[in-house]
């Protein structure tokens, strides 16, 4: 009989890895659109380049490892890594740095640990931190958001900067770039300025940097889509946001002139993107529900700590990588009570 011998269940599986990844990609659309609107086409060019590099790197390393490349590429995980990293990169970053970062992420952080599912660290963040530590100047040169820019940056300008690594003819870096709000806040505070004084500058909007402060909302829309589609659960994003808000709020209440309002922390840098898209990477995060709450809250607190007292203006990547290290231990100590065990039995 031509009947297949497969163990139960025999049901049609409602879920598939590539569909999960595709939904993550779709969820990135609103935030990406906002970034392109603010910082020009460089964001999109970086995304395309990073995707091409990531898929090529994945195929090459799988060939070297003697594994079939096609199923791994089809699962779209390399594309997600590339897109998340590209969003975090400055929109003018020279292409070879993007290549370096992506190759580090895919080859070292992901495949050398065994590929999808085996990587202890979030590959996108590992690649990002690798670049940030190795090329701090290039990695912190950001364009001014469009409403603050003296010169508007065209598609050709973005392409020129990315391909050559130098500003477009007739323009200097100073003319197009500006410090990020987190960077600005940090520099000014370190010079002993009061927050009230700092916020006099036209760089500032209602609570965060002008332009910047709204990017988070668009990523939030994508994040809510992921929640609705049950690609992620609320545990990590909510606990991370709470961790950041509570720790920032506590210090803000102690001294509102030296510590920015928690809303500033939430809607600056990568906090929202991190909460919904980065910390929720299932491979490198905690898997038990209790563990996810600890994991998320710890990232939130670490983001505040590193931003306030650390050496870098933003901290999401560092906080996530630090907690990735702790995830297996947290999981071990937060196992749920099994049915019929302990206090529930009887």
């Amino acid at each position: 009989m031509a009947s297949l011998i497969i163990s139960s269940p025999h049901s049609a599986r409602p879920n598939r890895v590539d569909r999960v990844m595709l939904q993550v990609i779709l969820a990135l659309i609103p935030g990406t659109a906002a970034m392109i609107w603010l910082f020009g086409w460089g964001v999109a060019i970086n995304m395309v380049l990073a995707t091409v590099f990531a898929v090529a790197a994945e195929a090459a390393i799988l060939k070297l490892r003697g594994r079939p490349a096609l199923p791994a590429i089809r699962d779209l995980s390399a594309v997600v890594t590339a897109l998340l990293m590209a969003i975090a990169l400055p929109p003018t970053l020279p292409w070879w740095l993007t290549l370096l970062g992506v190759v580090f992420a895919i080859v070292i952080a992901k495949q050398l640990f065994g590929g999808l599912g085996y990587n202890p660290f979030n590959p996108a963040m590992a690649g990002y931190v690798f670049l940030l530590v190795s090329y701090p100047v290039a990695m912190t040169t950001w364009l001014a958001p469009s409403m603050l820019a003296v010169h508007s940056v065209s598609f050709a300008d973005s392409l020129h900067m990315i391909l050559t690594g130098s500003p477009p003819p007739g323009l200097s870096w100073d003319a197009v770039s500006a410090a990020t709000p987190l960077d600005e806040m940090r520099t000014q505070l370190s010079q002993g300025q009061m927050i009230e004084e700092i916020r006099q500058s036209p760089l500032w909007g209602d609570f965060g940097g002008r332009g910047w402060e709204w990017v988070g909302n668009w990523f939030l829309i994508g994040g809510l889509f992921l929640l609705w589609r049950r690609v992620i659960t609320w545990h990590i994003p909510v606990s991370m946001i709470l961790g950041l808000t509570v720790s920032a709020g506590l210090f803000w209440m102690l001294d509102p002139q030296a510590y920015p309002f928690p809303g500033f922390h939430l809607f600056s840098g990568g906090a929202i993107l991190g909460a919904f898209f980065i910390a929720t990477d299932p491979v490198s995060a905690c898997t038990t529900k209790k563990g996810q709450l600890i994991f998320g809250a710890s990232i939130g607190v670490l983001v505040f700590v590193i931003r306030t007292w650390g050496g870098y203006p933003d901290a999401v990547a560092f906080a996530v990588l630090l907690m990735n290290m702790a995830a297996p231990t947290i999981d071990y100590y937060t196992q749920p009570r099994v049915f019929g065990h302990g206090r529930g039995a009887g």
Binding site: I6, N15, V20, G115, G117, P282, A285, T287, F339, G340
Partner: peptide, 22 residues
């Protein structure tokens, strides 16, 4: 169901387990 892909540790299984196993 096709060839099994690597586990991505998504935790859907733990959420579905009626015995609260991992």
């Amino acid at each position: 169901p096709g060839p099994a892909l690597p586990c991505i540790r998504c935790g859907n299984c733990a959420a579905a387990c009626p015995a609260s196993l991992l």
